[in-house]
Amino acid sequence: MSRAEADAVAGTGTPVPGKSAPAAPETGAPEAPGPAAGPASASDSGPRPVRLAWTLGLFRSELSITFRRWRTLALLAVLAAVPVLVGIAVKIETSDGGSIGGGGPDGGGGPAFIAQVTNNGLFLVFTALAATLPFFLPMAIGVVAGDAIAGEASAGTLRYLLVAPAGRTRLLLAKYATTLTFCLVATLVVAVSALAVGALLFPLGEVTTISGTRIGFGDGLLRALLIALVVAASLIGVAALGLFVSTLTSSGIAAMATTVGLLITVQIIDQIPQLHAVHPYLFSHYWLSFADLMRDPIYWDDLVKNLGLQALYAGVFGSAAWARFGAKDIAT
């Protein structure tokens, strides 16, 4: 759907209580941000709550536009299908009583935790996340983040957005927040789909951690949720990178392709042992550390490194995106 339509839908679809603020700027009346804004709102130094409501309104409208796109829904559907495929494959392979991976000194092949799936369906959550985290999830994030600014620019709607008295920084923040929300939603879609498939196909019950100790099912579910959150947080870096790339170009496709290309390049570099000196600085290097949450006691070192690295990427590329976008001439 076109931007103007979408905003119209968003404006009516998510009314801010007591205000028509989000829809107002689209009317092209920047000095009249709605009756509820109060007398001081015409100037840039309006009261704080109003600004907050504005930012939230912008965020909400962005959110509903993003999640109403067919593209986004298709990405989520693909992500939801991965655990189904993995679950069915494991079920078929083990239906004759054999174990997955066939044992042997190398252990089971395939994604992490796959050997435990037959014992406990909850492990399908971890397997599915381990299978989607290297490529599917960040690719989806790359598409959404790459589209954030460049997509608007190529559709010719960016300048209309900037007509709104929200300011470029807040538009950028709203875009980034939307991308991060998508990270969380995408991860949860994988996790919930995996949990459903795991519960249908395999038994549930007490969970054996990879350290060999046992924890209750409730505790296991809690850890699964924690893992999903950590996986979502692992994508913060890609999201910031994608947003920065998106501010560099006016072509949405180019931004998406560049982001996904960077993702693949980084993954390849991470596999080359001769380049081990740069590995700790690659955003994908500590991704699989989420598995450390399944140790008992939890091994925090790599998890902390991962989250720190993501924060660093968010800081560097987020501010780079701000620097680029704030000073950019918007021609379209």
Binding site: A115, Q116, I210, S211, R295
Partner: peptide, 19 residues
């Protein structure tokens, strides 16, 4: 994780990768 557990009379080794 590969664990080697000695508890009383039992010695267990558990390899989580191959289960």
């Amino acid at each position: 994780e590969y664990s080697l557990i000695h508890n009383g009379d039992d010695v267990w080794a558990y390899d989580s990768a191959s289960n």
